[in-house]
Simulated scan of single mutants.
Amino acid sequence: MIGLARGTVKVVPYSFNWKEIYKEEEKLLYHLLGETAIDIQHVGSTSIEGLDSKPIIDIDVGVKSLDDVDKHRNLLEANGYQFRDNAGIEGRVMFAKGREDLRTHYLHIEIINGELWKNHIYFRNYLRLNKEAVEEYSKLKKNLAAKYTNDRGSYTNAKNEFINSILKKAKEEVD
């Protein structure tokens, strides 16, 4: 299963299909974005084996300049992506794929090796290597999903303390 109604929260068990769904989308994005896409990465919870997640595929596209996104906007929209500006986070351009009642992908276009890019990669990589953290995060997400079923903003905000603690650990390991 992939997809979730916009604004809602439902956490489901990890699915190995998510990796395949990502790979198909990665091929499409490299085709659509060409050389503008320096790197494309599967990020977010669906990229971490064993982690319960909202069934939406998060994809990071690393670019040299966010200004380059404008020349691809129409092509992305013609392929099902809806422009979401920066969706409240400075330093990125965001697109969502899927109907309002069934969002399937979030596309985060960010400066390659910028802070947002690195944070997504550090977080993902740390969890991929730390099973205990995956179990803790899954438990937190399930509890928060039960509490905030129709309040995506509160669900997301309630995860911040955990996410920031993982980023701190991940950065300490890299430095």
Rank of each mutant, 00 (worst) to 15 (best):
D68R: 05
A146H: 08
P55R: 07
L4N: 00
E35D: 13
V11Q: 07
G7W: 13
Y22K: 01
K27H: 07
N79S: 11
F95K: 00
T46D: 06
Y22F: 15
K169M: 11
K142P: 01
K54D: 05
K168C: 09
Y81M: 02
L107I: 03
G50T: 13
K71V: 15
L102F: 06
T149D: 00
A146K: 10
D101K: 11
N86W: 12
K23P: 00
K142Y: 02
I109Y: 04
S138W: 09
E115P: 12
V9C: 09
A37M: 10
I166P: 00
N143Y: 06
H108P: 04
V43K: 01
H120F: 15
V9S: 00
T36E: 06
Y155M: 08
R152Q: 08
K23S: 08
K131W: 11
I56V: 15
I48L: 10
N86E: 14
E115A: 13
A145P: 04
N113L: 14
K139Y: 13
L140R: 02
T104W: 05
Y81F: 14
T149L: 06
M94K: 08
L140N: 01
D68Y: 04
E132W: 07
Q82F: 11
Y22W: 10
I38E: 03
K27C: 01
M1C: 05
A170F: 05
L76D: 00
K54T: 03
L144Q: 01
V174Q: 14
I40N: 05
G3T: 05
L127W: 03
L102Y: 01
D85W: 09
F83N: 10
D52I: 04
T36K: 08
K139H: 13
F16R: 11
M1E: 06
E100L: 14
A78H: 07
